[in-house]
Simulated scan of single mutants.
Amino acid sequence: MNATTLPIDTSSRSDAADSRADRGFRWLVTAAGVFVLVSLGAAALSMLWGGRLAFDKFGIAFLWRDAWNPVLQDFGALVPIYGTLVTALIAMVVAVPVSFGIAMFLTEIAPRWLRGPVGAAIELLAGIPSIIYGMWGLFVLVPFLGQHVYPWVDAHLGGIPGVGALFSGPPLGLGMGTAGLVLAIMVIPFISSVMREVFLTVPTRLKESAYALGATTTEVVWDVVLPYTRSAVVGGVFLGLGRALGETMAVTFVLGNAHRLTVSLLEPGNSIAATIANEFAEADSPMYLSSLIALGFVLFLVTFVVLAIARLMLRRLSRREGNL
């Protein structure tokens, strides 16, 4: 009597294995996402705990006090916050138009044989360490601005009513204006790279249709390319702003590290990152160290608020464009 061979249901086994693999992959990527949130929360809480002595003594007024006297144990975050925001604002004012021009040149105007070398040069600039930018700014940019640019700025713009205070001061070369320029040079490669990649996503048919209707290059850029990529462009700008807010070494070299509040862009100032980098090793008391860690927590909050505003702007743009 011959035994009957029963068919093996391989499809059910394969489905079960695929289901287990899918669940495992889902748990893996979920753990990766949770790890990011836990790390972010742990970093914020550790800085908040480290700065508890400063917050206990000065309270919320620590954010707007302009004192910084290690001898008297009197500290405040206003001057570093002001310097951080001003230098980042200067960087954005300079970097955004230049980055937009570079991206437009590479995608719409430059011949094909030139796009590769210029794009590679931008990527190389993005890879240069920040300390190199700081040393270049200190030994090249600071003497040039102090001898040839800032004297003219002080003489011709310092007396203008209303805005003259921004451009008056001793032509030292060091100051918030110089720090803003160095930051602009640093973030231009990042913003322009993002803009270039985004502009390349615009369908060629849209641009060719506009050109066929008689539109100029300027009209194509403003009426076709920018509306199509508006959300991504705003995201790239805020990515560069986040880099500018947290930059340390490049700013430390050229900012002047003077802990005083001044509206002049020609005078030395300070920033949160520069203050921490310069004084952390010299913190010889628990209150001094706690104040520096509290500054780190303030920088975390500033960056978080800026990125949250960016997310809200992108969401509003998406709703306006009908994507949500």
Rank of each mutant, 00 (worst) to 15 (best):
residue 89 L to V: 07
residue 279 E to L: 04
residue 16 A to I: 11
residue 218 T to I: 00
residue 250 A to W: 14
residue 123 E to R: 15
residue 150 Y to K: 04
residue 158 G to H: 13
residue 126 A to E: 12
residue 208 E to H: 14
residue 62 F to A: 01
residue 69 N to C: 06
residue 261 L to R: 03
residue 98 V to L: 08
residue 224 V to Q: 02
residue 77 A to R: 00
residue 164 G to P: 15
residue 307 L to F: 09
residue 76 G to I: 09
residue 179 A to K: 04
residue 128 I to F: 15
residue 98 V to R: 08
residue 68 W to Y: 13
residue 12 S to W: 05
residue 73 Q to L: 04
residue 65 R to Y: 09
residue 41 G to R: 14
residue 281 A to S: 02
residue 179 A to C: 05
residue 179 A to I: 05
residue 234 V to F: 00
residue 90 I to V: 08
residue 198 V to M: 12
residue 266 L to W: 00
residue 210 A to K: 10
residue 109 I to C: 03
residue 278 N to V: 06
residue 90 I to E: 07
residue 231 S to T: 05
residue 247 E to W: 03
residue 77 A to M: 09
residue 50 G to F: 14
residue 63 L to M: 09
residue 311 R to Q: 08
residue 214 G to V: 14
residue 155 A to F: 10
residue 29 V to K: 12
residue 69 N to I: 11
residue 262 T to K: 03
residue 189 P to T: 10
residue 135 M to S: 03
residue 173 G to T: 05
residue 152 W to K: 07
residue 247 E to T: 05
residue 236 G to W: 07
residue 33 G to P: 08
residue 172 L to T: 10
residue 183 L to M: 04
residue 54 A to T: 04
residue 312 L to E: 02
residue 36 V to W: 10
residue 177 G to P: 13
residue 216 T to F: 13
residue 1 M to Y: 07
residue 24 G to L: 03
